[in-house]
């Protein structure tokens, strides 16, 4: 009896993930489908696939500076933020994983609270802070603001990876006469390369998906694509095709790297604690 249910359960077990994946892909398919349609086809006849596929929507985005600059702006501040976050987090994560020092646990906890902080709380004070420094509508303002949650994230993820590296490696290197900077750059960083990759990927992702703070701190010159997307209404009504194409293009950076980080996604979201 038991074996019978077990085998039948096993042979049908592919069904559950399959249904789930179809549920996940349907809305995405719909967006991609729309991005290849003309606006008349979208609002006119209902169709499951584009009958007369067009690249016009993508052409609009790649030829209109007010559109493609949004992507460039997003990429600039996201890359700046990733570089800043990972480089300051590396030594800090090493300190947390190897040493005990005054207030270490409180500091580690305080970092976590910033990862969990609601962006809505910080939107207005950020605006005033960066206004005071004259940094509104610059890429560096958004990059620094996103450090609020990305630096703690990087520290936690890297600390998780570093704790997996045995301490004997450090000690052996010191005995062999390595200075700390040389040891850190030559031996340690290659050892935790995958951890750095995961931390960088998650910093990139969380800065890429955040909209509230990025939108509050920018007006025109550094406006992210996600904020530009919200105003596709033109004189002739809503430009659904371009909106869909813009949405598809924001998914692509994640979709490109997803294969390489597939085994680390759970670890990254769980702050390196899985």
């Amino acid at each position: 009896m038991t074996t019978a249910t077990q085998t039948s359960g096993r042979s049908l077990s592919w069904l559950v993930p399959t249904i789930y994946i179809i549920f996940l892909l349907l809305p995405i398919y719909w967006l991609v489908n729309m991005s290849f349609k003309t606006n008349t086809e979208i609002t006119g006849a209902f169709s499951l696939y584009p009958h007369s596929p067009t690249l016009r929507n993508y052409a609009v985005i790649f030829t209109d500076p007010s559109w493609y600059k949004g992507y460039i702006n997003s990429i600039i501040y996201v890359v700046m933020n990733t570089v800043i976050s990972v480089s300051v987090a590396l030594p800090a994560a090493y300190a947390f994983s190897r040493y005990r020092f005054l207030g270490d646990k409180h500091l580690f906890f305080w970092l976590l609270t910033n990862r969990m902080a609601p962006p809505a709380v910080f939107a207005l004070p950020f605006f005033q802070l960066y206004s005071a420094f004259g940094l509104i509508d610059t890429h560096i303002a958004v990059a620094l603001a996103h450090c609020l949650f990305n630096v703690p994230l990087a520290v936690w993820i890297l600390e998780g990876f570093m704790s997996g590296v045995p301490k004997e490696i450090d000690e052996t290197a010191y005995i062999d006469g390595y200075s700390f900077p040389r040891f850190f750059l030559r031996i340690y960083i290659p050892l935790i390369a995958s951890g750095i990759g995961v931390a960088a990927f998650f910093n990139f992702m969380f800065s890429w998906v955040e909209l509230l703070i990025a939108r509050t701190l920018t007006t025109t010159d550094a406006k992210p694509i996600a904020a530009i997307m919200t105003r596709t209404v033109s004189a002739s009504g809503m430009d659904w095709g371009v909106l869909a194409a813009a949405g598809v293009l924001t998914i692509i950076p994640g979709a490109i790297v997803i294969y390489f980080v597939r085994n680390y996604i759970a670890k990254g979201f769980a702050l390196g604690r899985v």
Binding site: A226, L243, I251, Y259, R262, I265
Partner: peptide, 22 residues
Amino acid sequence: LVLMSLPLLIPWNVVGTIWQVF
């Protein structure tokens, strides 16, 4: 793993847009 991770990596306002349209 790849297909299931996809929604996690979509910008949040695009998630909103996808469902608004859908």
